Each structure stands twice: as C-alpha cells, then as structure tokens.
Amino acid sequence: MSEFTVVPTKQLHIDNQVLSHINHLRLDNISSLEMPPKQSLIKSSSYYLMKLLSNVLYQQETSLDQQLKNESLFLKIKSFFSYIYDFAQLSGSELIYTIYLVQKLVNSEIQDFIEDNDCIMIADSNIGTTLICAVILAMKILRDPTEMKSNIWWAKSFGMSLELLNQSEMEFYMQLDFNVSLDEQQFIRLYSQILSYSEV
C-alpha cells in the first residue's frame, strides 16, 4: 500500500458581517433565487435601487421634490423589473446581479466625478437605458447563451435602436473597467441588504 500525504485545505474566510447576513437568511431564501423573484423581492430591490439612484440624481432637490421624484423613480424601476420578470423570465439571482451592476456603475461614476470633476453619466433621462444594460449584462453572465434574449429583442421591446443599445451596453461595460465579477460574500451581503428593505 502506498503512502499518501495529507495536504491541508485552505479554509474559506467569511467576515463577521457576512456571517451575520448568512445567519439571517434562510436556506429557502437562497435557493429560491434561481426561480423568478417574488413580487416582494422585486419591490424591495426597486426600493433599494431607488434609494441608491436618488442619492446621485436628486441630492440638490428640496425634500418635497425629492420625495415626489423618488416615488416616481420607484414606480418606474418596479415596472421595469416586473416587465422583465414577465417577458424575459428574470430570476432572483439576475435581479440581485443587476442591482450590483448598477451600484457598481454609480460608485464608479462618483469616483470619476471626485477625481476628474467630470459629469456623471446617469441622469433621469437615461435610467431606463442604464437598467436595460445592467439586466442584459447580468443575464449574459448568469445564463446559458441559448436562453438569452438577443439585443434585437431588447431594442424592439424598449423602442431603442439596436445601434444605441449596443453602444450603451459597451459604455456601461467600459465604465466598470470590464470588471463585473461578484463574489459569493458580496452577493450574500447585497441580498441581505435588499431584503432589509422588504419591511419598508
């Protein structure tokens, strides 16, 4: 009989904050993300995203104007995700990944603004395009290519030219420096944060 050497395996380090998020999440919450999201997840995701975008778009507004614009933005985002849920079979994981990509875009643009005093690309007028690009990218990352809707479908569904959609998608991707990876700990942390908005 030959001898074998036992090689210690590297332990996965999970920070305490992520561990507390994991403890609050039930196993059925995580496993359900492969399925289409429940309306409660769409609602809490829309609220989370509205808060994120509002901080960039409406920070100069009066509190009353900001509240009115937030309500309108929330409804637009929720309607968008509901549409994608109905017609592109959006999964819970894709929804979370979409939120992550938009959040990453916002953070990238804020950083660019601080460093260069350049204007931020996200505006009221292009929120829809931003969301479309984020969803497309999330689906391209998480789906089998045979299950993907084509960019032609997306352009037709949202009344955009294919050229504009392709250009916007590339600009979105470039703004993220082609780095769209999301590790498990980030995913769990973000998912838990989004779920915390379900009580709102």
Score class of each variant (00 low, 15 high):
Ser2Met: 01
Thr5Glu: 08
Val7Asp: 03
Lys10Glu: 02
Leu12His: 10
Asp15Tyr: 00
Asn16Glu: 07
His21Trp: 01
His21Val: 05
Ile22Asn: 06
Asn23Ile: 14
Leu25Ala: 07
Ser31His: 06
Pro36Gln: 06
Pro36Arg: 09
Pro37His: 09
Pro37Tyr: 05
Lys38Cys: 01
Ser40Trp: 11
Leu41Thr: 04
Ile42Trp: 04
Lys43Asp: 12
Ser46Ala: 07
Met50Ser: 14
Leu53Tyr: 07
Ser54Thr: 03
Leu57Thr: 09
Glu61His: 06
Thr62Lys: 13
Ser63Met: 14
Glu71Ala: 08
Leu75Glu: 12
Phe80Met: 02
Phe80Asp: 10
Tyr83Trp: 03
Leu90His: 01
Leu90Glu: 15
Gly92Arg: 00
Gly92Phe: 00
Glu94Ala: 03
Glu94Asn: 04
Leu95His: 12
Tyr97His: 09
Thr98His: 01
Ile99Cys: 03
Tyr100Asp: 00
Gln103Cys: 14
Gln103Leu: 10
Val106Ile: 07
Val106Tyr: 03
Ile110Leu: 12
Glu115Tyr: 11
Glu115Thr: 11
Asp118Phe: 09
Met121Phe: 04
Ile122Asp: 12
Ala123Thr: 15
Ser125Met: 14
Asn126Asp: 13
Leu131Cys: 15
Val135Lys: 00
Ile136Arg: 13
Met139Glu: 05
Ile141His: 15
Leu142Met: 11
Arg143Trp: 03
Asn151Ile: 08
Trp153Ser: 10
Ala155Phe: 04
Ala155Cys: 08
Lys156Pro: 09
Phe158Cys: 11
Met160Ser: 15
Leu164Tyr: 04
Leu165Glu: 00
Ser168Trp: 06
Met170Gln: 06
Met170Gly: 03
Glu171Asn: 08
Phe172Ala: 08
Phe178Thr: 06
Val180Thr: 10
Glu184Ala: 15
Gln185Met: 04
Gln186Asn: 13
Phe187Leu: 12
Tyr191Gln: 07
Ser192Cys: 08
Tyr197Trp: 13
Tyr197Ser: 07
Ser198Cys: 14
Val200Tyr: 12
